[in-house]
Structures are given as structure tokens and as C-alpha cells.
Write a protein that binds this DNA or RNA. Structure first.
Lengths: 345, 345
DNA sequence: CTGAAAGCGCTTACAG
DNA sequence: CTGAAAGCGCTTACAG
């Protein structure tokens, strides 16, 4: 099958390529009605579709953005991606999504690949492992925004949860229901990934504000595969936690599995708080409490800013940190029956 | 920032553009060692990245495929997409994902858009509403594969579940646990969407094989928003069902919500069987039975065939229907306590 | 072993 | 109001 080009249309309509191009780009300022009609018919007759690749080469923009997500397995990521896609569609941008799999090398490769594909801008959930690369994009004034994670010393807009407050709300929620021995589990913190660090920080602050002791054995940051051992340790304490905060969906899953395998009934023997809006969880038992992130809003806003940066690439917009508040999704956790509230018990 | 082009590299290395191009494409057959080195260094020094858009225009291929999914909200879709992306990455293809939202007009627009972007091939979860469009792609021998849904009269490979068998397994599973009054809920069937039709078909066949009556009031196909009314009707029968099969995740959600709101305990008062591997469901209560689709395998195989078609576009491969078997994921449904098995009770 | 030239399918000043 | 020409950044026969 031979593809129809603008030349074919021009020949068929008896005009020049330029005129057809004007027509395609709706530059009708000086075009005769009759010419317009002839071109319209030629396009119709031949079933012509402009070649966007050729247009992109000439115009030096592709109307496509790249999204590099640190780990596609999180429900948070998929929800934000969906929101980004919605906003892009409204603005006639296409989206190419790549999964860095928490691997800085993959992330770097994707950045290069997407730049080679001439995407107009990038939304990155940064692994944090490519400082130089991030810096060089800033230096070249290439449009980029970050989601979920702050990279210290890199001057790029970030859209993320108010993690400290989210943890505080979680602790307060549990405290209000009589819990004073509260644990927290997160993935590894070696690479200083913002949400993990900040959620632990908020957790500690909240405990201090409530004048509760911070027990370092109640804080476990490790690979999800190893988490069960961490939990075992936590629960071999003489006074084990009566509540656990799970920093994301994957760790939440491990906590639930651990509880099931060890016969801990939820929420009676163990109260559980998670983050993110995880499908089905709120409708099923056991009753958990979830604090959800406004993923839709975050994705929209990130995409909007990126598109703005693309369209006004000359005007420097000062970059800043955009914080979003969590919402209590579900959570009719009953009172802790075993351990009453210390201030009232 | 001015982008570095192949001309800059050529000038810097003191060779011609052609030679640099040869180098980039690893056509080293006749290239002098010293030339190779000079080019390598020039690329390094200048930080040159080839412009893939220009290459695509010349080569008339983009190494990109499009995926048009009927509805991104199903966990099935996201899982298959992930598998497609994996296979594509291994073969150096990029993926652009579009969500048709069960809307044939959107689907048509996306097809045109993706063709205009010169994608090398398409994976479609067809809405079924664009017969002419599908046909025209077949006629032009444009590489396409379908997933999940058969479109009658269109000669395109399809990758989908053995839905009839899946329903039979579901019915048998329930029957083995003493259930004889089994309902089924699906999204609307007006557009003859394959999995819905076939799952109802398999359900009926299974009942007949077991010599159980088929009660049309136990079959509800409607928009998820309306499903609660359908369920209400079903359960106002003098002898309401003791088990429900939900055809996908969205209908499953409605069934669970309905049970919760109407105080039906699962699985004691109502056994529930769903399809797809839905995160968290198998670990939480109430105990459901899920039959999962081999989404990973399906996505891989679909992508592989598409890539093969792209690479051997001349050799016609006869198209066929590729069926996959479901697996029992979880399901320790207890015996039905209220209604014993008629053959044993 | 390497280079000059043509061309992929568009857009865009510019001329008339 | 419309057309001829140049050019986007590559690749690819072909010549030498």
C-alpha cells in the first residue's frame, strides 16, 4: 500500500503543496473559497492523512510528552498516569509511558531515548539516582516536572503529597482510637526517597507531639520481600504494636499477609492504616483505614504545568514544590479494646 | 539550546555525514579504525543524540506501536498493557497507549491519530463499532492484532480467554460446593462484546450439563451504575440465588457493594465468583473465588505476533483465534450451608 | 574505505 | 490569493 502524500493531494486538486499545507493548518486568510473546496474534496477522495513525523521534523516539536515512572506497580503511579493522559488529550498531546522499575540506569536510558524521540517535555517520578542528568536538563531549560519525589539540589517543580501531615493524620487517627504502640513499615530508605523519609518523619513528629515514645524497633524500612522478617521482629517485642501504618500499597499487602499468616485479627488485634486509594480495599474486610492521595489532581496539575512550560519555553517560571493534602477514605476502625487510651484508661 | 546534529558531528570529526550515519548504524564493514575512533570521540565530545524523528521519516518506520484499549479501567487491560510493553522493550519498540473508553468514535479517532503518527502496528481491544475501519486495515495489510474481543467477519488475529470454559469452571466450582441457584452479572451485551456473550453462553451450557434449570432472571447484563437494581430484582425472586458469578472486576465490585448494603454475608449467604487477578482481593475477606486470565502471556504473545507481522510484512500469515485458559486463583469457598446439594441432600 | 547527492513528507518565509 | 524553493536531520544507493 502506497501512502498518499501532500503532493498527491496537490496534484489531484490542481494546486501547489504550499496551498494544501496552508489548508491543513487552517491558514485560510487569503484562500479562495473554490480552492478550499477543491482541496477538501481531494483529501476526501484520496483518503489523505498528513504524516505527523514529517511535520514534527520540520516544526521541531512532536506534541508528545514522555512519562517516566519510578515503579509502575504502585496504584498511585497508574492513577497519576491516567490523569496526565487526560490532561494531555485535552491539549492534543500524546503520551509515552516508561517504567524505570526503580532502576536509575533504566531511567537514564529512557530519558535519552525519549529525548532522541524529540518529546517536547518529560514528567518524571525520579529514582533520584541521576543527579547530573536532571541538572543538565535544567541547564538546557528543557521542560521537566517531577512527581512524588524531591531531588535535593535540583531546581525542578515537584508535585507530591504533604507526607508529613499524612503520617500525622494516620497517627492521630490511631491514637484517637486508643492506640499508643504504633509501628510503621516502608520500602528501603537508603536512596532517601521522599515519601518514605517524610512519612517516617511525620510519624515520629506525631508521636512526639502526643508525648508517646518513639521505638526504633517499630520502624521497619526494607524490601517488600524481606518485610515479613521485619514484622516478625517487631512483633516479638515484649509489648508489640497494636497498630501498623503501611507507607504504600505493596507494604500494606505484606502487612495484611503477615497478619493473616500469624492469626492476627484485623482490626481487633491489629489496626492497619494505609495510603493510596486501592480498589476493592474499602469495600472488603478487614476494615482498614486508608488515606488517599489526590492522584487525579496531582496528575492534572503536573501535566498542565509541563504543557505551559513547553508552550512558553522562553519565559522562565520559578520552580517550586507543590504539596497536596490526603483525604480519609475509609476507616471505621473501632476502639482498641485491649489497650485503652492512656490518658483516659 | 541548539541541538547537535549529524552535520556537527561530521564537521567535528572531519568526515562526511554519510560516514557518521554508517557509524551510527553499525555498518563497520569498510570503516577505518581511525575514522571510527574520530567519530566516536566527536559524538562523545558534542553529546550527540541522533534525531529519531528524522530517521523515522527517512526509513518509513518508527519502531513504535499503538495500543488502543477499550476501557483502561479494567485491571485486565492494565495487566495486558504491561506485558505488551515488556515485550516491546525487549524488541526495541516503543508503545503509545490510548483509551477508547468503550466509545467507537474515540477508537476511530485514535486509529487515525496513530496512523498519522506512523506507528508500525496496532494492538486493539476493539469496541466492535468500526467494522469498515478494521476491514480497511486488513485490506491494506497493515499490521494489527486484537485482544479480548472477536469482531465477526474481520480477519484479524485475536488473543482471548476461553470464556466458555471459564464460565463452566465457575459454575462447576459453585455446584461442587452445593450451589444450584447461581446468578451471573455482566456489563451490557447489546454490542455483542465477546467475553460477555461467551461467559453467559458457558454459564448456560454448564447449567444444562448439570441438568440445572436456566432462570433468565438470574442473568443480568447492564451498566454497572444500574446493576444494583438488577441485583435487587434477582434477589426478590421467591428462591433467590445463593451464588453469583461476576463477569469482570467492575461488576464484581457492584456485587460486593450490593451484598454489603443488603446485609448478605459472603460466602455464607452468598457465594461469589469473579474473573481476573484483582490485587488484594485474594488476601482480604470475604472469601471469593477468582479465575484469573493469563494476562502476562496474552500480552506477550499478542505483542510478539504483531512485531513479527511488522517485520515480515510481505509474508501473509493466516490469522486465527488464540485461546487461553483461566486458572483458579483463590477460592476456599465453604460448602453451601443453607441449601445442600440436591444430589446429596 | 569515504563522500556528494537525492529524497523522506512536511512547513515556511518570500516572491509575485 | 498562490507557488517555487529551501530546509528540518536523517539514510541510502551510487560513484570513485
Amino acid at each position: 500500500m502506497k501512502r498518499i502524500t501532500i503532493s498527491d493531494v496537490a496534484k489531484f486538486a490542481g494546486v501547489s503543496k504550499s496551498t494544501v499545507s496552508q489548508y491543513l493548518n487552517k491558514r485560510f486568510d487569503y484562500m479562495g473559497e473554490e480552492t478550499k473546496l477543491r482541496i477538501e474534496q481531494a483529501i476526501e477522495q484520496l483518503g489523505y492523512q498528513p504524516n505527523i513525523v514529517a511535520r514534527s521534523l520540520k516544526q521541531k516539536r512532536t506534541s508528545t510528552i514522555g512519562v517516566i515512572v519510578s515503579n509502575i506497580l504502585h496504584s498511585f503511579s497508574t492513577q497519576v498516569i491516567r490523569a496526565i493522559e487526560d490532561t494531555c488529550r485535552e491539549n492534543d498531546f500524546h503520551v509515552i509511558v516508561c517504567n524505570a522499575d526503580d532502576n536509575p540506569t533504566k531511567e537514564e536510558n529512557y530519558v535519552h531515548m525519549l529525548l532522541a524521540k524529540q518529546v517536547d517535555g518529560l514528567v518524571i517520578f525520579p529514582t533520584g539516582g541521576n543527579l547530573d542528568l536532571y541538572q543538565s536538563m535544567v541547564k538546557q531549560n528543557y521542560p521537566v516536572v517531577f512527581v512524588d519525589r524531591i531531588v535535593e539540589g535540583v531546581d525542578i517543580d515537584v508535585f507530591l503529597l504533604d507526607n508529613v501531615n499524612a503520617s500525622k493524620l494516620a497517627v492521630q487517627h490511631l491514637f484517637d482510637r486508643g492506640h499508643t504502640r504504633i509501628g510503621i513499615v516502608t520500602p528501603p530508605v537508603e536512596r532517601r526517597i521522599t515519601p518514605r523519609i517524610e512519612r517516617i518523619e511525620g510519624y515520629k513528629k506525631a508521636l512526639e507531639d502526643l508525648q508517646l515514645p518513639v521505638n526504633e524497633n517499630f520502624i521497619k524500612s526494607m524490601n517488600v520481600e524481606l518485610l515479613k522478617y521485619g514484622l516478625k521482629e517487631m512483633f516479638s517485642e515484649p509489648e508489640p504494636p497494636t497498630a501498623i501504618i503501611a507507607a504504600n500499597d505493596l507494604t500494606l499487602f505484606e502487612v495484611l499477609k503477615f497478619a493473616k499468616e500469624n492469626g492476627l485479627t484485623i482490626p481487633d488485634q491489629l489496626a492497619v492504616v494505609g495510603f493510596d486509594d486501592i480498589p476493592f480495599v474499602t469495600i472488603l474486610e478487614p476494615t482498614l483505614t486508608l488515606f488517599s492521595q489526590p492522584t487525579f489532581d496531582m496528575g492534572n496539575r503536573a501535566a498542565e504545568l509541563l504543557i505551559q512550560k513547553i508552550q512558553e519555553q522562553d519565559t522562565e517560571i520559578e520552580s517550586r514544590i507543590h504539596r497536596f493534602q490526603p483525604t480519609l477514605l475509609a476507616g471505621n476502625l473501632p476502639e482498641n479494646k485491649d489497650k485503652h487510651h492512656p490518658n483516659f484508661g
